[in-house]
């Protein structure tokens, strides 16, 4: 009898203790959560009695994922802010220059011939402005995710050839050559020809502007399709780590007409197509490798 009473008393006391501990835990978690809401902190919810550990782990999982979302959002926001600053700077440069020439034409006594020459400069500046605006538009569309890549069956070789033809004259004028090395004449993949065109266009243009020597373009077939662009490295030496960053350019004063967007766009587009792009140095050679998923012929 006494033993039974003692055992019951002990059990009751133990249950009461558990109840109180759990109650305490709820109160302390609530208080901590309220505290976390008020301040900017990395801190998470802690257990105080160990009676609700799983619940706390779940809450913390949720907290952590919201925080990492916030971090990536802030990163993106920061990049966007940076971009805005750069854009306004980039747009102002040709605009100011053009306005300056207009001012000269309006207020100075100059000959027709000179006027014509200055108008030509103004035109050049405005064309540059147009080009910039196009790039920005493209980039903003990309950032907002407005454009979805198509997936058409197309001949990759002919797209490359078309891009090369575009720049043939420019390269010849600079006494340089584009050497195309394709083992086949037809290579069917499913992709977006418009995006592909822009990628190759940007890469060839980049090699023309910043590289030296001949540009060799080599097509490598495998599980995926690789296109290797190889040319001499230009001066000043590029910073390989930041080469794909938006607005990265070796020309800090931004007077040569570089937007620093070419490679960033090429990278974004390649990734949109499910591929990857990388830049390497091999001695004095500068190598760009585009890898595209080799979805050959989907009927």
């Amino acid at each position: 009898m006494t033993a039974a009473v003692v055992i019951l008393a002990v059990v009751a006391a133990a249950l009461l203790l558990v109840c109180m501990l759990q109650r305490h835990e709820i109160v302390s978690v609530t208080r901590e959560l309220r505290g976390l809401k008020e301040k900017k902190t990395n801190s998470l919810v802690h257990s105080s009695t160990g009676t609700a550990d799983r619940l706390i782990t779940e809450i913390n999982g949720l907290l952590t994922s919201t925080r990492s979302d916030r971090i990536s959002y802030e990163k993106k926001n920061h990049a966007l802010e940076q971009m805005m600053t750069n854009i306004s700077h980039d747009l102002r440069t040709p605009l100011t220059s053009a306005l300056g020439y207009i001012n000269i034409i309006q207020h100075s006594d100059i000959s027709e011939k000179e006027k014509e020459r200055e108008l030509a400069i103004i035109e050049k500046r405005l064309l540059r402005l147009e080009e910039l605006l196009d790039s920005f538009f493209e980039l903003s569309k990309m950032i907002s995710g407005g454009r979805k890549p198509k997936s058409d069956a197309l001949n990759l070789v002919s797209v490359i050839e078309e891009a090369v033809v575009h720049y043939y004259d420019d390269y010849t004028a600079a006494e340089r050559q584009i050497i195309l090395d394709c083992p086949v004449h037809r290579l069917k993949i499913c992709s977006d020809s418009g995006l592909l065109m822009r990628i190759f266009d940007n890469l060839i243009n980049n090699a023309l502007k910043h590289g030296t020597g001949d540009l060799s373009i080599k097509l490598i077939q495998g599980e995926n399709v690789g296109i290797v662009f190889r040319n001499g490295v230009g001066t000043p030496e590029p910073d390989m780590e930041h080469i794909f960053d938006e607005f990265y350019t070796t020309d800090i004063s931004r007077t040569k007409g570089n937007t620093g967007l070419g490679l960033a766009i090429a990278k974004q587009f390649t990734e949109m197509l499910g591929g990857s792009i990388s830049a390497d140095r091999e001695g004095d050679d500068f190598i760009m490798t585009v890898i595209l998923p080799g979805k050959t012929e989907q009927e």
Binding site: H46, S47, G50, R54, T57, N60
Partner: peptide, 12 residues
Amino acid sequence: LRYYCYQKGITD
């Protein structure tokens, strides 16, 4: 570190 997790009340 497990010991300090207990002390700090880290459940994960």
